[in-house]
Design a protein around this nucleic acid. Structure first.
Lengths: 175, 175
DNA sequence: CTTTATATTCAGTTTGTACTGAAAGAAACG
DNA sequence: CGTTTCTTTCAGTACAAACTGAATATAAAG
């Protein structure tokens, strides 16, 4: 994967772009795209050269991808360097990312909302309205969490299957 | 809503923080939080003062919120200024945001993936692997789109009800 | 233990987004 | 119409995140 085809470039660039829109560093996303397309694990050096970024930048980015659990280091016989490879199961990949973003963003938000509701001073003027709004918002986040927990309970393949099923029974909604 | 209570401040700050993590401008998110908590529509001037940002900044941010359809201008008798109010239905709000982010991010990605797959040169070496990966990714995005379309078809309240149903199944608790 | 290959850290720099204030533009008022 | 009040635009600035390259750390090999 020293040389990229036009198609690979397009995919990698787009993925990088998408990353930035979702609060993911462009280089991190690009590296992930590159590894995802690569049939074999790549050493950091190659990644840096292919994407024209500093070796150190690759190091940091890889670390982040490892944190998410969607990239890991593997060893190649006769080579001292670490080689990095991406998880290839797309569903599992997104599951991992979502799980962690939930933990880092949804959960803290629920926490804040709870604290806010708990700390509301009943003497303050206009508390009633504030409480209403905070409760509505809190309810939403609790519901989202419930939904997430339920999906998590299903095995990986099941979600896919469920989805395909739903597609077929478009308007026969008897649940 | 000239003066913010400690609770309101906490909520607004947290919301701003969350915004940045999802690629939403901090000020935009804060303004939304403020309007969401406000029992009545607020003029831009007040928003600027309350959040300590430039009047012009409020103008731009409000515009973005209006684009999303979660904030709108209303008029108050005897006041020439525009007053802005946020939508209060949390579910509908998120529905709107998700709908538009899908359009701006998911759809273009599907498009790119399709183009990539279509443009793959069968003579190039290693196309097979690239095609496999791109197809897996494309499949995922198509499925997500399906899921989205199905949810969209349900009336607003139904998702909520569906969710509450699932919750009850889990731990037999009446709401 | 020394040398060599690789990885990581970090201070300084670049880059891009967000923000400000001044100026221009609209719209109501008299 | 001219004036006043409010809104938007925009050029320049501030700020934060990302990136680089040199220095440092780590680990294999001899």
């Amino acid at each position: 994967m020293a040389e990229l085809t036009a198609i690979q470039k397009q995919y990698i660039l787009h993925w990088g772009e998408m990353g930035t829109r979702w609060g993911i560093n462009r280089t991190v996303a690009q590296i992930h795209a590159l590894l995802y397309l690569s049939p074999h694990a790549l050493p950091a050096e190659d990644i840096a050269k292919t994407l024209s970024v500093a070796r150190s930048n690759v190091s940091t980015s890889i670390r982040e991808l490892e944190t998410w659990g969607i990239v890991r280091a593997v060893h190649v016989l006769g080579d001292r360097r670490e080689h990095y490879e991406s998880m290839k199961d797309v569903w599992e990949m997104f599951r991992l990312v979502i799980e962690q973003r939930k933990r880092r963003e949804i959960d803290p938000t629920r926490e804040v909302l709870r604290r806010c509701l708990a700390d509301l001073d009943p003497h303050e003027s206009g508390v009633e309205y504030t409480r209403e709004r905070l409760e509505a918002m809190a309810g939403f986040f609790e519901a989202v969490t419930e939904l997430y927990d339920q999906m998590k309970r299903l095995p990986t393949g099941a979600v896919r299957k469920l989805l395909r099923m739903g597609t077929r029974t478009k308007r026969a909604k008897a649940s």
